[in-house]
C-alpha cells in the first residue's frame, strides 16, 4: 500500500523514509553502537537546505491567496526548523561524545522531524493545488446550474462558449491529477467520472437545443424535454461532485484496498 498519495511526494520522500527507518533499526540492533562519525558537515547540509525551504515557503505563503495554505504552512515550516535544530544539537553532542545515546536519539528524532515536517509542507502545497482544480470544477457546476434557464438559441451559444473552456481546463487538470495519484482506486474513479462528463456534455447541449426548439414552437413535449435536460445536467453535476470528493482524498480506505 503506498504511504504517500502522489507520485511527486512519494519520489521525494520515500527513499529518505526508508533510510530513516533503516537508521532506527540499526540503532536498535546495535544498542551500544560504534563511535559516530563527525556529522557536522552533513548536518550543515540539512540546515542549509532547511533555510532555503523556509525562505521559499515564506515566499509561497506571502504570494498565495489561499487562506488555508497561509494558515497551515507556517506550522509545517516551524516543524522542519525545529527538527534541524535537533540535528544541530545532536551533532554538537556527538562531537563531544561519539557514543552518546541521547545524541543518537536526538539524531533519529531530528531525521524523523525533517521527514514529517517536509511531508506536512508538501501536503499543504499539494492540497492548495487540489483546491485550485476544485475551484475550476465548481465553475463548471455553476454553469450547469443555469442550464435550465437557457431558453433561446442565442443564450445556448453563449452557454456553450462559456462552458467549453472551463470544461477543457477541468478535463486537463483532473486527468493530470489522476496520473499523479498513487492510489489506483482513486485514479480509476477520476478517469471514470471524467469520461462520463465528457460523454454527457454534447448530450446535454443537444437536449437543451431540443428544449429551446420545442419551447419556441410552443409544441408538445416541452415539459419532457425540460426534464430530460435537467436529468442530464444533474448527472453531470453528480459526476463533478464525485470528482471533487475524490480529489480531496489523501488517506486510504483499507476495505477499499482489500
Amino acid at each position: 500500500m503506498p504511504v504517500f498519495h502522489t507520485k511527486t511526494i512519494e519520489s521525494i520522500l520515500e527513499p529518505v523514509a526508508q533510510q530513516v527507518s533503516r537508521l532506527v533499526i540499526l540503532h536498535e540492533e546495535a544498542e551500544d553502537g560504534n563511535a559516530m562519525p563527525d556529522l557536522e558537515k552533513p548536518v550543515f547540509g540539512v540546515s542549509r537546505a532547511v533555510q532555503n525551504l523556509v525562505k521559499v515557503g515564506r515566499e509561497t505563503i506571502q504570494s498565495s491567496d489561499d487562506a488555508i495554505l497561509r494558515q497551515d504552512m507556517p506550522a509545517a515550516l516551524q516543524r522542519v526548523e525545529q527538527a534541524a535544530r535537533h540535528l544541530e544539537e545532536a551533532s554538537g553532542m556527538l562531537k563531544a561524545d561519539p557514543f552518546s545515546q541521547p545524541a543518537r536519539k536526538k539524531l533519529i528524532e531530528g531525521s524523523r522531524g525533517i521527514l514529517q515536517g517536509t511531508s506536512s509542507l508538501l501536503l499543504c502545497f499539494d492540497e492548495s493545488e487540489v483546491r485550485k482544480i476544485i475551484s475550476e470544477c465548481k465553475r463548471v457546476l455553476d454553469y450547469l446550474a443555469v442550464a435550465e434557464v437557457v431558453d433561446s438559441l442565442e443564450d445556448l451559444v453563449r452557454f456553450v462558449k462559456d462552458l467549453s473552456p472551463c470544461l477543457s481546463k477541468v478535463s486537463r487538470e483532473v486527468d493530470g491529477r489522476q496520473k499523479e495519484l498513487t492510489h489506483q482506486v482513486h485514479r480509476d474513479i477520476l478517469i471514470r467520472c471524467l469520461e462520463e462528463v465528457k460523454t454527457l456534455t454534447p448530450i446535454l447541449i443537444c437536449s437543451m437545443k431540443i428544449y429551446i426548439q420545442i419551447h419556441a414552437q410552443g409544441g408538445k413535449g416541452g415539459e419532457e424535454a425540460g426534464m430530460n435536460r435537467d436529468y442530464l445536467a444533474q448527472r453531470m453535476t453528480d459526476e463533478l461532485n464525485e470528482i471533487i470528493r475524490v480529489l480531496q482524498l489523501t488517506t486510504y480506505d483499507e476495505d477499499e484496498w482489500d
Partner: peptide, 29 residues
C-alpha cells in the same frame, strides 16, 4: 515548483546525513 525543488534538496541532504550516521552502526550489526 520552488517548494518541490527545496523539498528535494532537503531530502537529498537528509539522505546523506542518515547514510553517514548509518554507516558506523551497520559495521556493528
Amino acid at each position: 515548483e520552488m517548494i518541490l525543488e527545496a523539498a528535494k534538496s532537503i531530502a537529498a541532504a537528509t539522505s546523506a546525513l542518515v547514510k553517514a550516521a548509518s554507516a558506523a552502526q551497520r559495521e556493528l550489526v
